[in-house]
Design a protein around this nucleic acid. Sequence first.
DNA 1: CTGTTAGCGCTTTCAT
DNA 2: ATGAAAGCGCTAACAG
Lengths: 348, 348
Amino acid sequence: MKTLTNTSVPNHKVTIVDVANEAGVSFATVSRVLNNSAHVKPETRARVLSAMERLGFVANRQARSLAGGKTNCIGLLVPDLGTGYIGEIIRGIDAELTLRGIDLILYTTHRTASKEANYVANLATGMVDGLLLVLPRNPTDYIGTLTRRNFPFVLIDHQGTGQDCPAVGATNWQGAYEATEYLIKLGHRRIGFITGSMDLGCAQDRLAGYRAALRTYHIPEDPNLVYEGTFFQPDGYAGASAFLDLPDPPTAIFASNDVMAMGAMDAIRNRGLRIPDDISVLGFDDIPQASLIRPALTTVQQPLEKMGRLAAQMLLDLLENPAQKVERIELPTKLIIRESCQPPRQAD
Amino acid sequence: MKTLTNTSVPNHKVTIVDVANEAGVSFATVSRVLNNSAHVKPETRARVLSAMERLGFVANRQARSLAGGKTNCIGLLVPDLGTGYIGEIIRGIDAELTLRGIDLILYTTHRTASKEANYVANLATGMVDGLLLVLPRNPTDYIGTLTRRNFPFVLIDHQGTGQDCPAVGATNWQGAYEATEYLIKLGHRRIGFITGSMDLGCAQDRLAGYRAALRTYHIPEDPNLVYEGTFFQPDGYAGASAFLDLPDPPTAIFASNDVMAMGAMDAIRNRGLRIPDDISVLGFDDIPQASLIRPALTTVQQPLEKMGRLAAQMLLDLLENPAQKVERIELPTKLIIRESCQPPRQAD
DNA sequence: CTGTTAGCGCTTTCAT
DNA sequence: ATGAAAGCGCTAACAG
């Protein structure tokens, strides 16, 4: 059984003053060493470092930040942790942050816009050096404030509503377009579409992609074939049920995310219909379980982990060089063909 | 387009001094109001409160904590975010913490014991007021230090290795016992068991529960029918494959978590076998996707969200009253019967 | 290169 | 019930 940081004095907190005494320098010098200031004689630096080691010194984060330095924390706002979707993004963020020794403060907004704004206000008051916002709800509410304050942040998975701010997303429009096109080329003419929360840019883009593909192939859009959901599984169930109740139900259903696609599958099966024999289902995201369910879900893959990693990199760059040019990056989506789609039963 | 905290002075940070001036009191009084001190005349309090409101005052966390108080942050150490399992626990923790306005600092150890110890050492130095450790790896390494320092923490999902410290877990032994018993009563005699990481208490307990049930029903244990996994999906695949290669393969497979159960399902299907017709599969955890896959997974449910919530409550209580008696709570598991198990094909 | 001196925004005695 | 004053541990000019 090993012991942790097995130093002599366990109670009294070791401060830079203690280190300074131990090393025989002023505490300012210790601070310099702490901050990698160039103006320290290597020999002195070594002495300080060894004193730190000996005393088991750990810098006090709050004090550093209060005094005007960095907190070495960045804040992460996510809507929730439920679906694995966010988990993938966080994995990427985390990988990048760990690499640079930066801590992550996590806030779950539970999809409440007011909470989101509140958190942002709070965080930007010094808790963190920068902000990562996943699937922001009403960014317009606070982006202005953040920008004005020159507070570094980057949006993840939000196709802006015209605002010019750092963001990384995926090619939602393109992804939806290609998926719809795939369905059409399979022979489908009546394709039900279940949207996400339409206040989210990505949801709008996906719907737009679907519509564009329909237009390209001269398929008139049937309003009955678009069901407005909110990215939750029950929406998928309800949407598919509504489609199936139609006198002329679709031969394929394209859900704006995998979770809703799974809900749709459930509804379809509950009617005694089979996938993909009777009806095809296509999702969006490619969350881990998409490949685990049967039939394995054909879906549009978003490079979630990569998006997270990239966003973290962008933020870190912004932190180092605030004058950085604003970048908006869209990572490519990719249609992953698995088992849930096939040509419609009766060729028309 | 609304504006956030639409106050007059956007740049200069509002401090208690500003509030004090605005309210015509000393800044000490403002501090008292901030801390709900009893010794403030209601009228004065009201005046200060309204001044805060007017100025859009937000207390600076670092300053409060530096000045001797709490950080109002608690640290959460988790192995990873991959499976939804952890997500559920966090959801519970988060619910409780949000209620009390406490922030969450998230650390992902990626199942590395050394990282874990490191994080703990760092965090216990003032970053956070308390620690929540999910599925701790080598708690023996640091529990001693933590206890000695009187640093509040609670373990989640770790059946102690004899140490007396606050913890919340589930009845892993019981859960595995009942699940195995269910399989036996269904008529199964050859039941393959895929273990979790055997350095984790919960994994050991589940295996023990399985064995105990076998013993109760006088079924001799076949070493070939126990495959050692690590809680990851590929282990389930490999384990099931190994079982299926046996001259006398099992008629049911009990995996120590749902993710491995899904891996097992994959392997089974890849052999052209059907679930549950040819072979039954049973999991553990009841993660969200367990009910979404087909066949829906019969599994042992852990009250994940509740565990998280309870652990947070315990920690918060500990924070308020450090003299608290050490508690170890085990929440009951529950067998959720769905579609992945049925009696074995040929009654022997 | 290194030491001195002010604060950062707040909590907390100690007076009043 | 309220004010004054002394730090919490550290960074950041400013001197030397």
